Simulated scan of single mutants.
Amino acid sequence: MIPDMFRGRGGCGWLAALLAIALLCAGLSGCGSKYVPGISIPPAPSKKAPPAPAGKGGTYKPYTVLGQTYYPLGSAEGYSETGIASWYGSDFHGKKTANGERYDMYQMTAAHRILPMHTRLVVRNLDNGRTTEVRVNDRGPFVGNRIIDLSYAAASVLGVVGPGTARVSLQTIAGQRIQYVGPFYVQYGAFVVEENARRLRSRLVSRGFAGTRIAKGELHGTTFWRVQVGAFSSLGEAESMRLRLTKESPGCFIIAD
């Protein structure tokens, strides 16, 4: 998908509308209604890159976007790269990716211009040292100095959501998974009113989620209060809790400290 060239810039009208929705949700009763989906997600562009047609052996034929032709690799073995990562979110959630899947912003996926589909990559944020693993299931980004477009979930783990972009290194892996470093939390909801976050935390603690915390954050100068369930020592434990909480808070996702 084509990333937002101006992610994190401008959009005052969008921000005002989003804050209005957030305030409305914060005043409603019930845990599900209090979650503000995509509170940290900026608008995405209206144009979408066409999927590259599948070829034999899981490779892809050359494709052209914005006048530039790309030649996907037949193999990802030994591939490494350093450059700028961006991310994409709610405007593409549920839409088809280049390999035919439905984009899920809460899964650990990414878009790359030439790596074979389903390539697994270790992505390291060179600005803060955070590392995660993603699977390529889409094409992009088609902005000159960017090398990978991360899902919202992957960008959250790497600390890219706030700044919008980050310097990263990419390295393909084969046959084994990397070990993630915790602790991990499941973000249940986000509020612009601190008292609403505190009430939700109290309810979650009373239900047995004793480690639930409130994390303060800012976006475009506005403070948000994020309710996060945890802490979990392994990614597997956090994922089990995320699946459990998804039934009541569909947009919950995992973060790592």
Rank of each mutant, 00 (worst) to 15 (best):
M1F: 01
I2D: 02
I2Q: 00
D4V: 13
G11N: 15
C12E: 14
G13N: 10
L15M: 08
A16F: 04
L18K: 05
L19S: 00
I21P: 07
G27M: 13
G30F: 14
G30V: 05
Y35T: 10
Y35F: 15
P37R: 06
G38E: 02
I39P: 15
S40P: 13
P42L: 11
P43A: 14
P43V: 06
K56C: 01
G57L: 09
G57K: 11
Y60Q: 08
Y63P: 04
Y63E: 14
T64A: 11
L66P: 10
G67A: 12
Q68S: 14
T69P: 12
T69E: 03
Y70V: 01
Y71F: 03
Y71Q: 13
G74P: 12
I84D: 05
F92D: 13
F92G: 06
H93Y: 10
H93M: 04
G94D: 01
K96V: 05
A98R: 11
G100S: 02
E101Q: 01
Y106N: 09
Y106E: 04
P116F: 02
P116G: 02
M117A: 03
H118A: 10
T119E: 11
L121F: 00
V122H: 00
V123Q: 11
R124H: 07
L126I: 00
V136R: 01
D138Y: 05
D138L: 07
G140I: 10
G140H: 03
P141C: 10
F142T: 00
V143K: 15
I148H: 14
L150I: 09
S156I: 03
V157G: 03
L158V: 02
V161F: 04
V161M: 06
V161K: 02
P163K: 13
A166F: 10
T172M: 15
T172S: 12
I173R: 11
A174V: 07
G175W: 09
Q179W: 02
F184Q: 07
R203P: 08
L204C: 12
V205T: 11
S206D: 15
R207D: 12
G208K: 04
T212S: 14
K216C: 03
G217S: 13
G221C: 08
R226L: 09
V227F: 04
V227L: 10
F232P: 04
F232Y: 05
G236T: 02
L243M: 12
R244N: 07
E248Y: 14
E248L: 02
F253Q: 00
